[in-house]
Nucleic acid binder design. Structure first.
Lengths: 158, 158
DNA sequence: CGTGAAACCGGTTCAAA
DNA sequence: TTTGAACCGGTTTCACG
């Protein structure tokens, strides 16, 4: 153990497992066992525990949405029109399937939404739905291209 | 087939497969076969083809970074200090592991970065590295909480 | 929390249509 | 492109340390 800060051995292995599964979500328990030096069933147990604790929230396929018709991505920042009204935008917007993510943020606006739609027309319609559903004004930044996305942070040192 | 626009049967099945794997990246081929009405090996072939075509770019575990020490998320918008200089920010920034995504965008700024770090101090250091590596000014929006993320768009109608 | 063995189930390949 | 069969390898559970 030569790291500057203390970290228990089990945490170290769990981080390793998480990093490996972030890199390849379908890696087999057999391969995880080889990489971590544990037995297959020990790794199996740890992954189950990580899922139950919510450290691993699930597994997903990374999809190239350009190739399946959802080729317009945008960030939509929203701001309540009535600052006194209850701030329940996330719930009010949850039914809109085009919204991939919703982040509450510090700063001028209150939330940043990441949205994916088929076309500029679909974006226009979506923005109207967002404004009327949540009682907000919107500021939209259209994505032109994405050099990279979904890179997994380095967990070896924190 | 009662959809308004034409779509071939194979496309329909591929979309179904993609949607299912976006929902559960570890779903077995056996279950995919049941859901799609195909045989196991037919589904197997289709998934392989989707991976080769790049429609499925890979598989990953969805990680709760709060629980593993990367608890500060932020969006960093960047703008070149010299607008005449070559615009190679993505390559110049690629070595910074804390940058999870890089989007080229329309509007006031040229790129939006999504970053994850351990602490405010680490964010400060990262911003300095971004500015010096890419020759840009930065505008940072700190994420306070994330009501939802990684929701898969509805592929049934596009 | 770790292990190895046993039983089971899913992945992968193949020839055939 | 599809299928089913056959084989192989991974998953899962178990009793034990």
């Amino acid at each position: 153990m030569t790291s500057r800060r203390y970290r228990s051995h089990v945490e170290e292995i769990d981080r390793r497992i998480v990093a490996l599964l972030a890199q390849d979500g379908r890696m087999s328990f057999t391969d995880l066992a080889k990489e971590t030096g544990l037995s297959v069933s020990a790794v199996h147990q740890r992954v189950r525990r990580l899922e139950k604790r919510g450290v691993i929230r699930g597994f997903t396929a990374l999809v190239d949405y350009d190739q399946i018709g959802q080729s317009l991505t945008a960030f939509v920042s929203i701001k309540p029109i009535d600052p006194a009204a209850p701030d329940d935008a996330p719930v009010r917007l949850a039914h809109l399937k085009a919204i991939e993510a919703c982040h509450s943020v510090a700063g001028e606006e209150s939330y940043i939404l990441k949205v994916r739609v088929e076309s500029p027309l679909a974006l226009e319609e979506l923005l109207q739905q967002i404004r009327s559903s949540a009682g907000v004004s919107t500021r939209t930044t259209v994505v032109l291209s994405t050099p990279y996305e979904h890179r997994s942070p380095d967990l070896s040192e924190e």
